[in-house]
């Protein structure tokens, strides 16, 4: 094992675990009955108010859509930051860790030494599976109000599909979906669309994040489908962009 594990370290770990367990046990072993307010309300009024059969979608895209906006922003910032750090390259990485023994040449030598280890098996399989995964991703995204799924889930599957396409040797230009520029544009457009969707309620009366499509006469669930599509595009483009950038750097 490591030489850094001393008696003091083990004692500190032990102390932390014991005190936290002491604090958390009464939290989980209590006799107070489980609350049913939200459950009863969702059972009786949930589907009528939001129009979706999947109650989870109704909650995070209807009742609590502001939290979803927050989480989408967290993903956007994480992707943006990662791209920024990767783009700076090896010298910033070395300086950023404050360790003078990791000099720039280490990073450069690594990237030139790594040979393309892809075999034909990997390229053929991922190249053929890529479009299938993309279709599945779009299905999960758009049917989120009826079956388990939704914007985030579908978006991540779409991002995996984009990675498959990139790995599958289609960098010869047969698809534009694996270019970094296209993905960046998609991501910023969908973020703008999300903000505009939240503001549409303000402009057309009804308040912030109100269901404008319902006011225009469409079924209520239309707003949930729209939000699913926008979030799915955003998440897919964002994560895909980050993966393409890392793929380019690690090669």
């Amino acid at each position: 094992m490591r030489s850094k594990i001393t008696g003091l370290f083990l004692f500190q770990v032990f102390l932390c675990l014991v005190t936290i367990t002491l604090v958390l046990i009464p939290l989980f072993w209590t006799d107070i009955p489980w609350p049913t307010i939200a459950r009863d309300h969702m059972e009786n009024f949930g589907m009528a108010a939001s129009g979706a059969r999947n109650m989870v979608s109704a909650i995070y895209l209807g009742y609590r859509v502001f939290d979803t906006l927050g989480e989408t922003i967290v993903l956007l910032v994480a992707v943006s930051g990662t791209i920024g750090i990767i783009a700076h390259g090896g010298d910033v990485l070395a300086k950023g860790f404050g360790d003078p023994s990791r000099n720039e040449s280490l990073y450069q030598e690594k990237t030139t030494l790594v040979k393309k280890q892809r075999t034909a098996l990997l390229e053929v399989v991922t190249g053929k599976l890529g479009p299938v995964v993309l279709v599945f991703g779009f299905y999960v995204m758009l049917f989120g109000h009826l079956s388990p799924g939704g914007g985030f889930q579908g978006g991540v599957v779409v991002a995996s599909g984009i990675v498959f396409l990139a790995l599958g040797g289609r960098a010869d230009g047969s698809t534009r979906l694996t270019e970094a520029g296209v993905l960046a544009k998609l991501e910023s457009i969908s973020f703008l669309l999300l903000i505009l969707a939240s503001l549409s309620g303000v402009v057309f009366g009804g308040g912030f994040f109100a269901n404008t499509l319902a006011q225009a006469g469409m079924p209520e669930v239309g707003f949930i489908v729209l939000l699913n599509a926008i979030i799915g595009l955003k998440v897919g483009a964002g994560i895909g962009f980050m993966c393409i950038a890392m793929l380019g750097r690690a090669e």
Binding site: M42, G62, Y63, D67, G206, G207, F208, A210
Partner: peptide
């Protein structure tokens, strides 16, 4: 004060 989106107060923000 209010609830964002105008939903019911038992579940909304």
């Amino acid at each position: 004060e209010g609830i964002i989106g105008g939903w019911h107060e038992s579940v909304g923000i």
